[in-house]
Every structure is written in C-alpha cells, then in structure tokens.
C-alpha cells in the first residue's frame, strides 16, 4: 500500500516549509494590533506532526483549534495531537469544512494541501470563502509542480497540452496569455494568480460585502515545489484596521500578490553560528568576508540565509 506523505517525511525537517510557517505566524501576530487574534479559531490539516498547531498555539495564543484528518489516519492523529484544545475531525476536507462553525468567531483557516489543482483545493477554498466571518484569514498551500498536469488525457484518449489540462481544472481562472513556454517558466506565479482569482471571484459571487485582501504569495521547495497564498477576508472598515497593522512595511514575507521565494541553504551548525555572529546587518556580508571566516559560500546562499536567519531551523538528534 502506498504510504501517506506524513510517513515519508518528518514534517519538522523541511527547512523551507519550516521557515515559511514561522514567517507567516510571526506576521499574523502582527494583526494583534487591530484584531483579537487570540479569540480566533484555527482550522488546519495538522497531519501527525501538528507543527503549525504548536506554533499557532504558542505564538498566537489560539485555543480553539481544529485539525481535519482523513478518516483512516484520524485515530493516529488523535493520539499525536499535542494539546487537549485541538479537535481532530475525521473526514475529507470538502466534506468536513461545510460542517464547521464559522459563525461564532473569525477563523484562520490554513488549507495545507499536498495536491495541486487536481485535488480538492478549489472546492475547499470556495467553502471557506463563502462561510468565514469578516476578519478571517485564509491560507492555501498547494503543490506547484507543473508535472501534475502531464499525462491527463482528453475524451478521445489523447494526452492534453498542459495549458488545456490547467483549463480543465480551473476554467476561466486561467490567464489567457499562457503558452507552452511561459507555463513552464511561470508555473508557480500562474498558480498563485489562479488561486487569487478564485478566492476573489468566489467571494464576489457569494454576494457578501467582504473583499479579499491578499497578504502572502510564497513559493518554496523542499522536496516538491510548493506555493502558499493567503490574505484576509474583510469588509472595508476592517481593511483600514488591516492597513493600520502595517504588515507590508514590517514583514518581508507580506508582499500581497507579488511572489516571495524562500530558498534557505543547507548549512552546518558551525556555519550557521559563524554567520549569525555577523548579523543583523543592513548590507549582506560579501563572499570574501565569509571566505575569511573560513568557509566558501555562494552569494545567493549568503543572502538567502541572511534574509531568514532568525527563522532558520537547527535539527538535532536526541535520545529519549
């Protein structure tokens, strides 16, 4: 039997994903200036590791937490949940989401999928967009590998072009100017465009007065290329409160609809410490400076590290 992804990878060990989670939660903490984040509910897909749940509970002080888990793994997830305040609800996301309580409080919903547009993501996004209360935050993670579009056949059994396969899933959400070449080069950006378009048009189509205010468009790659988009569902008045929080000014990863890439280098602990000793700095250390420290490192890696050093994870072995 095929293994689920949580059995293949220890979620905590994906450094880019790890950094992304910390960046986003840090940024959401910034909402505290104007929104009672502590009172929010968190809806996520915690798998067996609940890494995001731990972070959200510790940093945002949220206590109302729901993790949706596939029925066959739910029992194991129940055993692994780190806090009593987490409720594991068994079932497929698209079946569980409509039954959740979006009424009594605003939500931070993180639809942390591993599939691409072929999965349930568009439907799940629709459910959240139609129901989440004013002031809610929606985060959506999907697989951004364009190879997911390969091998899909049309009705006559012929393999479809990637653009056509994409249209099959996302219809009018797909930008019209895509061709064979730029779909490859721009796939993560295109995917983000599609998701933003979907969120906005779903909210509009549901007739509600809120609009979607994009905050995140983050691309990273550990094993697979992944994309996370996010933002707030808010009425105009709350948009002003959101602006007051100054997220775009205070946090690099809050770029609105512009894509932000996380690409942390793999460093040894010794290298990390050597770099940390030089930080923070307004200008990144040069290749020569690092060379003087005693180890060679690409300019790109130096810069990437310096951008994310506060969140860079250190993994170690320990014995129970």
């Amino acid at each position: 039997m095929r293994k689920p992804s949580f059995a293949k990878i220890n979620y905590t060990l994906r450094p880019n994903k790890n950094v992304e989670r910390k960046l986003i939660v840090e940024c959401l903490f910034g909402l505290n200036e104007a929104f009672p984040i502590q009172e929010y509910a968190y809806i996520g897909m915690g798998s067996m590791w609940f890494v995001d749940f731990v972070l959200v509970h510790k940093k945002l002080l949220i206590e109302k937490m729901i993790s949706i888990e596939k029925e066959i793994y739910a029992e194991r997830a129940e055993f692994n949940k780190p806090y009593d305040c987490i409720k594991v609800i068994p079932g497929d996301t698209s079946m569980v989401l409509p039954e959740l309580d979006f009424e009594s409080r605003p939500t931070i919903a993180w639809l942390d999928h591993e599939t691409g547009l072929d999965g349930p993501v568009l439907e799940d996004v629709r459910i959240v967009c139609e129901n989440a209360k004013n002031g809610s935050v929606l985060l959506v993670t999907v697989n951004a590998n364009f190879r997911k579009l390969d091998g899909i056949k049309d009705k006559t059994g012929k393999p479809m072009k990637r653009v056509d396969a994409l249209r099959q899933y996302a219809g009018d959400l797909v930008p019209p100017n895509l061709d064979r070449k730029n779909i490859l080069e721009r796939f993560p950006e295109v995917l983000a465009e599609i998701l933003f378009a979907h969120v906005k048009s779903t909210i509009k189509a549901s007739g509600r007065l809120e609009r979607f205010y994009p905050l995140f468009n983050i691309f990273y790659r550990d094993t697979s290329p992944m994309l996370t988009i996010g933002g707030m569902i808010a009425k105009e008045g709350d948009k002003e409160k959101l602006d007051c929080c100054g997220l775009f000014r205070r946090f690099d990863c809050a770029t609105g609809e512009k894509q932000f890439t996380i690409n942390v280098p793999h460093l040894t602990v010794k290298e990390k410490i050597a770099l940390d000793e030089m930080l923070p700095r307004t200008e990144f250390p040069s290749v020569e400076e690092i060379e003087e420290k005693g180890f060679p490192l690409d300019k790109e890696d130096i810069e990437a590290y310096c951008r994310f050093y506060r969140h860079y994870p250190v993994f170690g072995e320990f014995a129970f």
Partner: peptide
C-alpha cells in the same frame, strides 16, 4: 478588477 471576469 476580477481576472475571472476579464478572462470570461
């Protein structure tokens, strides 16, 4: 403003 509107 909706790209879905323009695309349609």
């Amino acid at each position: 403003v909706l790209s879905a509107f323009r695309n349609r």
